[in-house]
Design a protein around this nucleic acid. Sequence first.
DNA 1: CAAAAGCGGTGCATTTTTTGCACCACCCTT
DNA 2: AAGGGTGGTGCAAAAAATGCACCGCTTTTG
Lengths: 300, 300
Amino acid sequence: MRHLLPYKYVEEIAKAGSIRKAAETLAITPSALNRRLLSIEDELGVQIFERLPVGVRLNTAGEILLEHIRNQMSDMARVQSQIADLSGQRRGNVSIAASPELLGSFLAGEVRKYQAEFPGVTFKVQQKFRGDVEKALIEHDADIGIVYEPMKLADFQTLFNIVQPVYCIMDKNHPLAKKKALRLYECAEFPLILTEKSWGVRNLLEQSAIRLGINLRAVIQTDSRGFLINYERETDQLSFDIQVNIPDNLDKRGMVAVPINTLDVPEGFVFIGHLKGRTIPVASARFLEQLTTEMAGRFG
Amino acid sequence: MRHLLPYKYVEEIAKAGSIRKAAETLAITPSALNRRLLSIEDELGVQIFERLPVGVRLNTAGEILLEHIRNQMSDMARVQSQIADLSGQRRGNVSIAASPELLGSFLAGEVRKYQAEFPGVTFKVQQKFRGDVEKALIEHDADIGIVYEPMKLADFQTLFNIVQPVYCIMDKNHPLAKKKALRLYECAEFPLILTEKSWGVRNLLEQSAIRLGINLRAVIQTDSRGFLINYERETDQLSFDIQVNIPDNLDKRGMVAVPINTLDVPEGFVFIGHLKGRTIPVASARFLEQLTTEMAGRFG
DNA sequence: CAAAAGCGGTGCATTTTTTGCACCACCCTT
DNA sequence: AAGGGTGGTGCAAAAAATGCACCGCTTTTG
């Protein structure tokens, strides 16, 4: 859309913090970009950026305008998506910001299923920690937010939520493998594979450990789910995950998943939704629908 | 805002139903306007208007786009208003769509009071019948809606509502003038000054009359409040209005207002609000605030 | 039934706008 | 004091938008 090029320029200048840098990434001359900015400010009657010796920075007026710009651009994306949908073609981009806990096999499977049906739809999946999912929505960096144990939900329009108990994953020959449910102190006797503290599961475990006076001993601490998958574990080591991520074929890999007593470690909540007051593009809305239906069917 | 000129063009073409006519009111050549439209459709990848032998008409895609355009333009107005407000100047336009019942002395007084404080603010006051107020909001023809006895409120965000009983207005020497409250059959014995049936007050009266088996005899029927004000009435004639429109100095004009028994004629409701999901400009928001505060104080 | 009038669309010359280049004044870091 | 960074500006070139004249078409009019 050529007519909202000025918007793109403002956004880029704000992001780069300098006209010259923005001009570079926009592939135009600083002089041209500068003049466009001046002309916008002229039309608006006020400055949008305050000029610093090292560049420019948005002022209050600029922030108001930038919010409008972001709304406007993503609403235009919605319009295009909706128009494309009219002619039967399902196109567009589904942009998801999710906590790392939710980026497991489940989400990947759902994306694949959706793409098989609508090959014209592209996906953008970003990993964001609990507090940052909402931020990504606010900045229109993502249409859909999926959070485990969110920190706040002020601008978050929840469309679906579900409880997700924490499971302990171990070798099928592990001493605890035959139990129906585990107490946390039982787990604490073995070497643990844990994620970073910023993950929701780890947070639940730590808080429970503090409350119960238990010390969790991490032999491996990582923030990478990929590493966890590829790591060939010792038979006595334990790891943790939420229900949604436990694959059906876990036993074929010689592993089992045992739930942890919810009195010890409370169930966490998964929230799925979008930014309050937004109408998201058709493709995103449909994927959201598929996601929640599937979740409700499998874990409701 | 030069960059949303294309939007203005699309809106005007849709309104005019013909490129040539639109070009005339936009003061440009039909050729130029046509090319702009073609370029927009080209960028969008689909036609926005279907071409008829007698002109053009929006298709579905065009309607989706037009809704976006209207949202976008009025949100830009809000941004400008908010930015202007930052620098201490209160500027902008307050656009009101109100039922004729509410266009009496009260609203006029409030507008005057507000303009005395903020001379930079302009007002646009449109009279709309009950069902059309909401329509004006949807089409972004007005920021604020004020309705008496609305027909539906699907897209209406109510910020304030208040009951408004119907009063009977008469000469101070009228036989009924000394009463505390009137029954409808008492009024029906005298010649009545009534508004058109599309007015909410008239509607309330008619429905009550039907229910009670009373016949209302209108000696004068008008849709003009101005006429009512200037009409020098016979001493036995009765007119009706809602509480909010009864001026303080009514007795100085030798008239009195007597409420009608609410068992006969139920109280009507006044709703004040704006379009759902909108953030209205600062000036409008402030005026809305003044309006509701004043109403609550005087009639709450 | 033919002429006239209205419609959207297009080629071309003209006008307006935007861009790129070179350069200025300024501030901070070195 | 020098060097590298910043935003801003005059001027010529490039690009985009516009107006004019005209086409093909359909509906309306006489």
